[in-house]
Write a protein that binds this DNA or RNA. Structure first.
Length: 319
DNA sequence: CGCTTTTGACCCGCGC
DNA sequence: GCGCGGGTCAAAAGCG
C-alpha cells in the first residue's frame, strides 16, 4: 500500500439501507431537480419521482450487499483473531521451553503474558569501583526496561533479517547462536542518538519462515515521520497478537464503515495499548494493513465499491 | 562523503 | 582458572 493512502484512508460507504433519501441527496441536487422541474413544467413530476424511487431502490440494494459483505468480513476477522490468539499462546509456550537456561540472569523472567524473557534484570554491580568499570552495568540498565517479542512471518528463503516496524535501526552485530543455526542480528535505534532501544532478530527454530524480533527498552522519541514506509512487503505477514478496537469495528449498529487510518489515530490506538509495549502497536499496525490490503484485494469488495462510487459520480454529473 | 552493513576480535558472565 | 557462548566494538567495505 502506498504511503499516501495509508496516511488517510476514509471510506464512507453509506451502508445504511434504511437511511432516508433526504440525507443522501445534497440540497444542491434537490435544488437542481426542482429547478429543472420549473424549467420543464410540462414534464410530469411523477416521472422525476419515479426516477428517484428507482435510484433509491438501486442504492438500497447496493447498501444491502455491502452490509452483507461487511458482516461476512467481520466473521472472517473474528475467526482469524481467535485463530491467531491460539497460535500465539501455543507459540509463546514453545518459546518458553526453548529458551536456554544457562545463565542465571536470563532466567529472571518478567511476568510478561507473552512469555517474554526478562533479561539481565539485576544491574547492581558490587565489583565496579570506578566509572570505567561501571560502563557495562550502565548498558545493562537499558535492559532493565521493557522486553517484548514480535513474530513476523516472512519468506523463508529471504535472508534479510530486517523487520519493518516504522523505526530506524542500525545493525551493529550478527552472531550465530548455539541453539539456532540461523544468525541473530543486533540492531540499535538510530533515529535518536541516545535512544536506548535495542532489537534482536532471529529466525525461529521451529519455523524458519518466522522472524522473532526481541525489543529491549522503550523509545525516548516519537515515531519517525517516515513511518509510512513501514509498509509490509507483499511477502510479509504478521503473526498478529492481541487485537484492539479499530474504528471500522467500533459499532455494529451503525453500518457506515469508516476505515480511518490517519496517523494520529494509529498512534492513539497504539498508546492505549501501552501494556503490551512495542509489539502491541506493531501488531495493530500489521493488523490495520492486513485489513486494508484484504479489503483492496477482494474483487467483490472493489467491484461493489466501484459501482457505488460510479453511481454517485453519475448522479452528480447528470444533475 | 556520510551513513549503513559486515565481520572478526574482544569483553564479560557463567558453568564446570 | 579455563572454556564456552552471548553481546558489543570497531575497522573495513559497500552503497547511494
Amino acid at each position: 500500500m502506498e504511503s499516501s493512502s495509508l496516511q488517510h484512508t476514509s471510506l464512507d460507504l453509506n451502508l445504511n439501507p434504511f437511511r432516508p433519501m433526504k440525507e443522501e441527496v445534497p440540497k444542491k441536487e434537490l435544488a437542481g431537480v426542482l429547478a429543472r422541474a420549473d424549467d420543464h413544467q410540462k414534464e410530469p413530476i411523477k416521472e422525476e419521482a419515479g426516477f428517484l424511487a428507482e435510484e433509491f431502490d438501486r442504492i438500497s440494494s447496493e447498501n444491502k450487499k455491502l452490509t452483507e459483505m461487511l458482516a461476512h468480513m467481520r466473521e472472517n476477522y473474528n475467526a482469524l483473531q481467535s485463530h491467531l490468539m491460539n497460535l500465539e499462546s501455543n507459540n509463546s509456550n514453545k518459546e518458553y521451553l526453548v529458551i536456554p537456561r544457562k545463565r542465571k540472569l536470563a532466567d529472571q523472567r518478567t511476568d510478561d503474558p507473552y512469555g517474554n524473557i526478562g533479561v539481565q534484570g539485576n544491574i547492581e554491580c558490587s565489583s565496579c569501583s570506578d566509572e570505567e568499570s561501571c560502563k557495562r552495568s550502565k548498558e545493562l540498565s537499558y535492559s532493565n526496561a521493557k522486553v517484548s517479542r514480535v513474530c513476523v512471518r516472512t519468506d523463508a528463503s529471504n535472508t534479510n533479517l530486517a523487520v519493518k516496524d516504522g523505526y530506524q535501526w542500525r545493525k551493529y552485530g550478527q552472531k550465530v547462536t548455539r541453539d539456532n543455526p540461523s544468525p541473530r542480528a543486533y540492531f540499535r535505534c538510530s533515529y535518536a542518538p541516545n535512544c536506548p532501544v535495542k532489537k534482536k532478530v532471529q529466525r525461529s527454530v521451529e519455523d524458519p519462515s518466522v522472524l522473532v524480533a526481541t525489543y529491549e527498552g522503550e523509545h525516548n522519541h516519537m515515531m519517525p515521520p517516515s513511518r509510512a514506509e513501514l509498509s509490509l512487503g507483499s511477502s510479509q505477514c504478521a503473526n498478529l497478537g492481541s487485537v484492539s478496537s479499530v474504528s471500522s469495528m467500533r459499532s455494529s449498529s451503525r453500518p457506515t464503515v469508516t476505515l480511518d487510518l490517519i496517523q494520529t489515530g494509529l498512534s492513539e490506538i497504539s498508546n492505549k495499548n501501552s501494556i503490551e509495549g512495542v509489539e502491541g502497536s506493531t501488531f495493530q499496525q500489521f493488523l490495520l494493513q492486513q485489513m486494508a490490503s484484504s479489503l483492496t484485494r477482494d474483487p467483490k469488495f472493489t467491484a461493489a465499491l466501484a459501482t457505488a462510487i460510479s453511481g454517485r459520480i453519475l448522479d452528480f454529473t447528470l444533475n
